[in-house]
């Protein structure tokens, strides 16, 4: 075996080992690298640290967003189409916040079961198109935005 081949094998073996190690670590960490939980996770998963702040993500349920009349408190429901959770948030919401929009909220579940949010972030999907195209799609019934990705 030439030295060149030996170096080649060394590099390849190193990369393979590293790849395996990374894959193992990432699999082990899968649950730890969760940025947000879905409303269903809140019901089914027992590992969620409910006494601390955590994030919940989902869609703002149609017809549930009560805009503040005088104060700043927004009330709405976040859903993953299987389970819902009621959210109460006092503060400024992002520009693209609307019903049917993906959101990620940070906060804590209160004794009354309502999730009190300290931060509301909007999550947009990967689709980009001009408003006219979106309007045409909606009109023709081919629109699938928002509904499809609930997780």
């Amino acid at each position: 075996m030439t030295r060149k081949q030996r170096r080649m094998n060394f590099v390849m073996l190193g990369l393979a080992t590293l790849g395996t190690a990374a894959a193992l670590v990432l699999t082990a960490l899968e649950d730890k690298i969760v940025f947000f939980y879905s409303p269903t996770d809140l019901v089914t998963k027992t590992t969620i640290p409910k006494n601390q702040q955590f994030r919940v993500g989902g869609l703002v349920k149609e017809g549930t967003w009560k805009k503040p009349e005088n104060g700043l408190t927004h009330n709405f429901t976040v859903t993953d189409l299987r389970h819902d959770i009621a959210i109460s948030y006092k503060g400024i919401i992002p520009d693209i916040f609307r019903e049917g929009q993906g959101v990620v909220v940070l906060g804590k579940v209160q004794a009354n079961g309502i999730f009190r949010a300290d931060e509301v972030l909007a999550k947009h999907d990967e689709k980009y198109m001009p408003p006219e195209v979106a309007a045409a799609l909606k009109k023709s019934g081919k629109w699938e935005g928002g509904k499809a990705r609930a997780e």
Partner: peptide, 14 residues
């Protein structure tokens, strides 16, 4: 793809 992220999934390379 692997994790829940605030960042949306890929739009072009999919």
């Amino acid at each position: 793809v692997w994790w829940n992220t605030l960042h949306q999934p890929a739009s072009v390379i999919k």
